[in-house]
């Protein structure tokens, strides 16, 4: 019963946010920012604990699995792109994932962030389930990493269009790789607004970033962590 209720309410708020977002195109109305805010306000007013809402949300969270699998379709449809750009994607994403780890690490050291936060923030640029695995492996707190991954998605999804516009990034290849590398699935959902090619590159970026970051989790990050 709770599952049905939570699913319906979340879906209605989500549709509402999408409408507002279409009408006003204001960053606050990003579905991953405004809808959760609405839900938090409603459950607080009704005195429902967040854990109860989350228990009811299992169906929605479960759908992340099939939704991820669905991205095989654009890759299959644009297989020629993958073959042609394999080298370029590998280099860009190897660099991008290194930049993600090192910039998070450097900025955290600079601001004297606590060890548990610092370690947990390092895999923040990749898709949640793999980020949790890497976090466990390097001695972070997987749940805290999930929070940082989601924040990364929200921030990346909101700033994506302005970055693309400001730096006049016109090639769908660069748009897709940048969005998928910097903001995983949320960036990829943004990439869909830039067309099928951008979506394909973004999906590939997400997959490559996750795979390469697993390698950094074994080879590079333990050394960085040892210096803290």
């Amino acid at each position: 019963m709770m599952i049905l209720l939570v699913t319906v309410i979340t879906y209605v708020f989500y549709l509402l946010t999408k409408k507002l977002n279409k009408r006003f195109a204001f960053p606050l109305f990003h579905p991953l920012l405004f809808t959760p805010l609405l839900i938090i306000i409603v459950i607080t007013l009704l005195n429902i604990p967040a854990s109860e809402y989350l228990d009811g949300a299992t169906f929605l969270t479960h759908m992340l699995g099939p939704a991820t699998i669905a991205f095989a379709v654009p890759i299959y449809k644009h297989l020629s792109i993958l073959k042609k750009y394999l080298g370029l994607i590998t280099i860009s994403i190897t660099a991008g994932s290194l930049i993600a780890v090192f910039s998070s690490y450097g900025l955290s050291l600079l601001l004297h962030i606590d060890r548990s936060f610092l370690v947990s923030v390092l895999p923040r640029s990749i898709t949640t389930p793999i980020a949790m695995e890497v976090s466990k492996e390097i001695g972070g707190l997987p749940t805290l990493t999930t929070v940082f991954v989601i924040i990364t998605g929200v921030v990346g999804g909101i700033m994506g269009p302005s970055v693309i516009k400001r730096f006049a990034i016109t090639s769908p290849m660069a748009q897709g790789l940048a969005l998928g590398m910097s903001a995983h699935g949320v960036g990829t959902s943004k990439a869909m607004e830039y067309g099928e090619q951008a979506t394909t590159f973004s999906t590939l970026a997400m997959i490559f970033a996750a795979t390469i970051t697993i390698v950094w989790g074994k080879l590079l990050i333990p050394t960085l962590v040892a210096f803290i």
């Binding site: 959760p36 967040a50 809402y53 949300a57 992340l64 669905a70 991205f71 095989a72």
Partner: peptide, 25 residues
């Protein structure tokens, strides 16, 4: 089916975003 799932991907992330309230840190 895949197109629908991909188009509504953000919907499935919403519970995780709500879950952030559990982290007082």
């Amino acid at each position: 089916g895949a197109n629908w799932l991909m188009a509504e991907l953000l919907l499935f992330f919403i519970p995780s975003a709500v879950g952030i309230v559990n982290y007082n840190e």
